[in-house]
């Protein structure tokens, strides 16, 4: 199966893959800064270049921490909790 070969190839070159993805992220932010030149949006968030980068990163971090934190604090129960 071809798909399998590609996946295996990617798995064997994880370091290269990581570098490519980091370059991609940098390009993404530069692109966002470029489209903000001269643009004027509805909210203040529309006028901050790279706002969604920060929002995505911090949002994801908070979501994981809060969800796992609350789960461990009291939401998680053993599977036979309801009998």
């Amino acid at each position: 199966m071809n798909v399998l070969k590609y996946i295996e190839a990617l798995k064997n070159n994880l370091n290269t893959l990581k570098k490519v993805l980091i370059v991609y992220l940098i390009i993404l932010v530069i692109y966002d800064i470029l489209i903000h030149i001269g643009a004027h949006g509805h909210f203040f968030v529309d006028n901050i270049p790279g706002f969604w980068t920060i929002f995505g990163g911090i949002g994801c971090f908070i979501l994981i921490k809060v969800a796992k934190g609350i789960a461990h604090a009291f939401l998680s129960k053993d599977e036979d909790f309801y009998g």
């Binding site: 966002d32 990163g57 949002g59 994801c60």
Partner: peptide, 8 residues
Amino acid sequence: QILSFTGL
């Protein structure tokens, strides 16, 4: 941006 940095 949202999706990529979530992935990161």
